[in-house]
Amino acid sequence: MSTDNQPKSVDDADPDAAFDPAELQALRERVDELEASLADNDTGDDQKKMTIVATQGSFDMAYPPLILGSTAAAFGWDVVVFHTFWGLDILHEEKSKNLKLSAVGNPNMPVPNAVAAIPGMDRMATRMMEKKIDENGTATIEELIDLSLESGVDLQACQMTIELMDYDENDFYDGVTTGVGAATALQHMAESDIQLLV
């Protein structure tokens, strides 16, 4: 191996050309500056943020946002669930107790659509599901809402759809955030590590 092309070692460097004190000082200042800005970014520690947008108000679709939201809060995450359109019914104190499972158009139902369309079938399908939920030791929707609020999940009710649905702000559970819109939701989404649309 030829030694002709070996890179110059540090020891061989011309000592006079090594450091320009002014440049060194500038570099030191730059490092201090960068470290300070890094420290500023660290102040939010490593807390994760999650935003869920809940648009559905059927019995089965109420569960995923509530389960994920309350579990994320148990991880110590900052959680916002933005409820809009039918998703508002999950937070509606009266309606949340009467959410229904749709029997029609649900391919997981053990009955054909023609039978599922008979009046009262939704109620019956919902009762069956509620019974299974009880037997399985799964929490009720109301329990999950209480738990979510208790553990600091920010349950938000979209103001535009509150008005669209002719609901009143007092119709919702205590602790639900009202007076928020798409911009608030987007702001949280932009800051979040996880964004889900349910």
Binding site: T71, A74, F75, G137, T138, A139, L147, S151
Partner: peptide
Amino acid sequence: QSCPMPIVKTK
């Protein structure tokens, strides 16, 4: 009790 209760209650 089933998911998510064991986690939430543990927390």
